[in-house]
Design a protein around this nucleic acid. Sequence first.
DNA 1: ATCCAGGAAAACG
DNA 2: CGTTTTCATGGA
Length: 281
Amino acid sequence: MPGITLSHNQQFSLDQTLGCGQVFRWDRTADGWWYGVIGKRVIRIRQMGSRLIFEGAPASFITHYFSLDVDLLPILASIDRDPCIHTAISQCTGLRLVRQPKWECLVSYICSTNSNIPTIRRRIASIAQRFGKKIEFEGNPYYAFPEPSIISCGETILPDCKLGYRTPYVFDTACQITDVKQWEDTITALPFEDARRELMKLKGVGPKAADCILLFAFQKYEAFPVDVWIRRIMQQNYLPDLGANSHLTGREYDAVRRFARQHFGEFCGYAQEYLYAAREG
DNA sequence: ATCCAGGAAAACG
DNA sequence: CGTTTTCATGGA
């Protein structure tokens, strides 16, 4: 079976990385194997110490998806600026931000609003099962995530996916993006704030979703998504003036992310993910 | 039943 | 312009 041996300075935790809530299409079996769909591939993978064992893709694909080519320790050193983030880093070392498929990530975060992670996972699985190409793996069916054109031409199926009021957002966005490759290239080429404004032109993509998409799919690490958990953590540890249980206004959202960008530096997105992964609840 | 979850659009002053 | 209301779903 193919494998990768991690070098001593190549810190990586498969469980932290796939279990922290940044991905919606991976499942862990009781005996430690992870199964996931990435693009047209089904992958199974597990970690034993410094050894990664997997099937379904060449090592180069695995290395790229899990960002094993990214030099993690200097990034963690750069964001490690106070006791709060220090604790999160020491709890979750080896957590890496993966390179998610961009179109799927966009839809995932349109589907994420005002929902919890199990519900989001169910919605993505439902879209894939109803629209996507079936992939057989070890005798079981898996489903690739469908291209925008498949969703935009199938007006009758999407309402079955139980997206609630997000159904027209996904449909509209699928209609907007007629050329996925061009869309990806456009966003990739733009600097962070411009890319953010561009994403927010899409129906159902607000500040939070745009930041998640830029961080998880476009590797724009200046993004600092502020969800209810992060807002709580930031209020308790960094910005007491935010107020304990208020809803975030647009102005407050900007204040939080600008503070984070200034405090944690250019890799503040990594800080966000470590704080989120170490959250209680 | 009531509240909450990786919020955003639309309506309202 | 900034602020409040509404939106559909499922789990606790």
